[in-house]
């Protein structure tokens, strides 16, 4: 499923995906509609433009995950607005790519997303690293709940941010490709879990059930 408010883009991406052997079950240019359609079309992967005209990326992702539990969301954005990319990843997106990425890179990313892997750009790795550092130095009123990265995870994430491929990282750290992949995925999982815990805590504090 392709969600993008730019018609040329939407069609181009859908064509590329179809040519590469994927079945495009739906396309739309609006967030609310995307959530509605997804409930019926039940896609495995949603290619989502982060900046839609009606609702924010975070809202679309929340809606999609509620409508189709387990759906994988690959975000695309043209401008790489850092905070919204980070927010979307925390909300549960499983990968991120700049729109300027080459076609082969894009198809590879869709494939990996479909297979359940996380797609990280160096920029996203930098954002995630920064977020963990920010959480670590935040006032410790959180009764020690701030998520932490293991040394290995930090090491892997730094190498991703420096542009090394998983294969190169695996070589350098003498790990298997799968292990590197798992480390990257864990960092994202921790961040998303922390985000859900924070939201729940907020809801309880505000007296909502």
């Amino acid at each position: 499923m392709v969600v993008d408010d730019h018609p040329m883009w939407r069609d181009g991406v859908a064509r590329d995906l179809a040519a590469a052997g994927y079945e495009v079950v739906a396309t739309t240019g609006e967030g609310r509609q995307a959530v509605r359609i997804a409930a019926a079309a039940r896609p495995d992967v949603v290619v989502l433009d982060l900046q839609l005209p009606d609702i924010s990326g975070v809202e679309v992702i929340n809606g999609l995950l509620t409508a189709v539990p387990g759906v994988r969301v690959l975000m695309l954005s043209a401008s790489g607005e850092q905070q919204s990319v980070l927010d979307a990843v925390k909300a549960g997106a499983s990968g991120y790519l700049l729109k300027s990425a080459a076609q082969a890179e894009f198809l590879d990313a869709v494939g990996r997303t479909a297979a359940g892997d996380t797609v990280f750009t160096p920029g996203l790795a930098g954002l995630v690293l920064g977020e963990f550092r920010r959480l670590a130095v935040e006032p410790a009123g959180d009764d020690g709940m701030a998520p932490k990265l293991t040394e290995r995870e930090t090491e892997v994430l730094r190498l991703v941010a420096k542009g090394l491929s998983y294969r190169q990282i695996a070589e350098r750290l003498v790990l298997s490709h799968r292990t590197v992949q798992n480390h990257v995925q864990n960092t994202l999982g921790k961040l998303q879990l922390h985000n859900r815990v924070e939201l729940t805590r907020y809801a309880i504090e505000q007296g909502l059930d």
């Binding site: 040329m8 181009g12 729109k99 300027s100 076609q103 894009f106």
Partner: peptide, 18 residues
């Protein structure tokens, strides 16, 4: 610019890359 120019440039780059 985000809504128009960037999208088109990215598209041109992507489709012409090969």
């Amino acid at each position: 610019i985000h809504d128009s120019v960037l999208q088109v440039l990215a598209l041109v780059k992507r489709r012409g890359a090969g």
